[in-house]
Computed example of a mutant assay.
Amino acid sequence: MKKAISDHKAKPGLIKYCFFFMFLFFSALTFGQARGRVQVIRDPLFDTLLAKRAALNRGGGSVGGGNFSSSYGYRVQIYSGTNRNLAYNAQAKFNREFPELRTYIVYREPNFKVRAGDFRTRLEAEKLMQEIRPSFSGIFIISEKINPPKTVISND
């Protein structure tokens, strides 16, 4: 009778070992897979865009041979408020008085801001600010990325 009891206890242990070895065998099969190949399919215009970007980074300007580059400088803010019509009126008034200077309208909810000029130095911006102080109230100088005017090189 004792022999029958010992056989009965041995079966669950044998089943556990079988499941353990089967688990190891199947997990080894999953990790033994061969490496695959990745094929990238892209639009031919992508290479053209990469070439243009490389030309822009090298030349520091536009691809067409232009002389445009942006840097940090100063602008004079002449209006800030929530009324769009007042912002456009301030821009028109400034453009009538100073047609040679560029103006920019920036909208950051809920405010419209009108900024004028592209000055490389703060001194130039302060000079304009002193000129327009009688016409515009609440003006001040902003430091931001500007579009500098083209420099004229003469051989005289």
Rank of each mutant, 00 (worst) to 15 (best):
S27D: 12
S27H: 13
A28S: 15
L29W: 11
L29T: 04
L29A: 13
F31T: 04
F31H: 11
F31W: 13
F31V: 08
G32V: 09
G32T: 10
G32K: 04
G32C: 14
Q33E: 14
Q33I: 03
Q33N: 11
A34Q: 13
A34D: 09
A34T: 05
R35A: 11
R35S: 15
R35T: 15
G36D: 05
G36N: 14
G36M: 10
R37G: 04
R37H: 11
R37F: 15
R37K: 13
R37T: 07
V38G: 06
Q39M: 12
Q39L: 12
Q39I: 15
V40H: 14
V40A: 12
I41Y: 05
I41E: 10
I41P: 02
I41A: 09
R42I: 04
R42M: 13
R42K: 15
D43P: 06
D43C: 04
D43L: 07
F46A: 05
F46M: 10
D47Q: 14
D47G: 15
D47E: 15
D47N: 15
D47R: 14
T48M: 12
T48Q: 13
L50G: 15
L50S: 12
L50E: 15
L50P: 04
A51I: 05
K52Q: 15
K52S: 15
K52D: 14
R53C: 05
R53P: 01
A54E: 13
A54L: 09
A54I: 10
A55C: 02
A55T: 12
N57A: 09
R58P: 00
R58F: 11
R58Y: 09
R58A: 13
R58G: 10
G59H: 09
G59R: 10
G59K: 09
G60L: 05
G60R: 00
G60V: 07
G61D: 01
G61M: 00
S62H: 06
V63Y: 00
V63W: 02
G65A: 14
G65Y: 02
G65H: 01
G66E: 03
G66C: 10
N67D: 10
N67M: 07
F68G: 05
F68M: 03
F68W: 05
F68R: 05
F68H: 06
F68V: 08
S69Q: 07
Y72H: 06
Y72A: 07
G73R: 01
G73E: 00
G73C: 04
Y74P: 00
Y74R: 11
R75S: 06
Q77E: 07
Q77C: 04
Q77T: 03
I78K: 00
I78N: 00
Y79I: 02
Y79T: 01
Y79A: 03
S80I: 00
G81L: 05
G81N: 02
G81W: 02
G81F: 01
N83K: 10
N83V: 11
N85G: 05
N85C: 01
L86H: 07
L86F: 08
L86R: 04
A87M: 03
A87L: 03
Y88K: 07
Y88I: 09
N89K: 11
A90R: 03
A90D: 00
Q91V: 01
Q91C: 09
Q91A: 07
A92Y: 11
A92R: 12
K93Y: 08
F94P: 00
N95W: 01
N95C: 05
R96Q: 09
R96C: 06
R96P: 02
R96A: 08
R96F: 07
E97V: 06
E97H: 10
E97F: 07
F98R: 02
P99D: 08
P99E: 02
E100M: 14
E100T: 12
E100P: 02
